[in-house]
Amino acid sequence: MNYYFSTITKGSFETIEAKVISLLKAEGFGVLTEINMQQTLKNKMNIDFKKYKILGACNPLFAYKALQVENKIGSMLPCNIIVQETSPNSIEVSAVNPMVTMQAVKNEKLNEVAKTVSIKLKNIIENINNEN
């Protein structure tokens, strides 16, 4: 089982990023954090890097359920989604697979939460290429 779900789509970086955020919202997630790697690497190290953002997404209901059964699970939250430009007009979107990452925790009570969140994140990745 892969530790991420991924797809490549065509479009501008900004358009695809907005679509990802919209799809996250439709699945009950909000974006809590945004790390702009292109900007950070330029500002901190003067390195030119491709457009690459890490979106920290959270579904409060499932985060709460996970925290109820494992109080240290916050160290593995939020769920990260990557939006990166692989070439002009070609954008890869990847999301963490919670079923894989939660295996490290070894708490059986997390399995149902991880399974549900995995399905939601996989749906988002699968719907990136749908016209809307």
Score class of each variant (00 low, 15 high):
V117D: 07
A95K: 04
A104G: 14
L110K: 12
M99C: 15
V100C: 03
S87N: 13
N97R: 12
A104E: 13
S94T: 15
N123L: 03
V100L: 11
E126H: 02
L110D: 06
K120F: 08
K120N: 12
T101S: 14
P88G: 03
E108H: 05
N111K: 13
N97V: 09
N89F: 07
V100D: 04
V93G: 06
I91K: 08
T101C: 08
I125D: 06
P88E: 12
V117R: 12
K115I: 08
N127P: 00
T86G: 01
I125W: 03
T116P: 00
A95V: 02
V93D: 07
N127H: 09
V100K: 11
V117N: 08
A104I: 07
N107Q: 09
M102I: 09
L110A: 02
N111V: 12
S118W: 05
V96M: 11
P88N: 11
T86Y: 03
I91Y: 07
N127K: 13
T116H: 01
I91W: 05
P98N: 12
N97C: 09
N123R: 11
A104F: 14
S90Q: 15
V96Y: 04
V96S: 05
V117I: 15
T101A: 13
M99F: 09
N127W: 04
K115T: 11
V96E: 09
E126P: 00
S94F: 03
A114M: 06
V96C: 06
K120D: 10
N89Y: 03
I125V: 13
M99S: 15
N89C: 02
V96W: 02
I124S: 02
L110Y: 08
S87I: 04
V105I: 14
K120C: 06
S90D: 12
Q103F: 04
M102D: 06
S118Q: 08
S94V: 12
I119H: 08
K106T: 03
N127V: 00
I124C: 01
K122S: 07
A95E: 01
E112D: 15
N111W: 00
I119L: 11
V93C: 10
V96F: 04
K120V: 04
K122I: 02
S87E: 11
A104S: 14
I125K: 06
N111I: 08
M99R: 15
A95D: 01
T101N: 10
N111T: 13
S87M: 05
N89M: 11
P98G: 12
K106A: 04
T116W: 00
N127G: 00
E92W: 09
N123Q: 06
V100R: 10
N89E: 13
I124D: 01
V100I: 14
T101D: 07
V100F: 12
I119W: 01
V113Y: 03
I124H: 04
E126N: 13
M99G: 11
I125F: 09
E108Q: 09
T116I: 11
I124P: 00
S87G: 07
M99L: 15
V93F: 08
M99Y: 10
I119T: 13
S90I: 12
V96D: 10
N97D: 15
S118I: 05
K120W: 06
I125Y: 02
V96A: 06
V113Q: 05
V113K: 02
N123D: 09
V105K: 09
E92G: 07
L121N: 08
S118K: 08
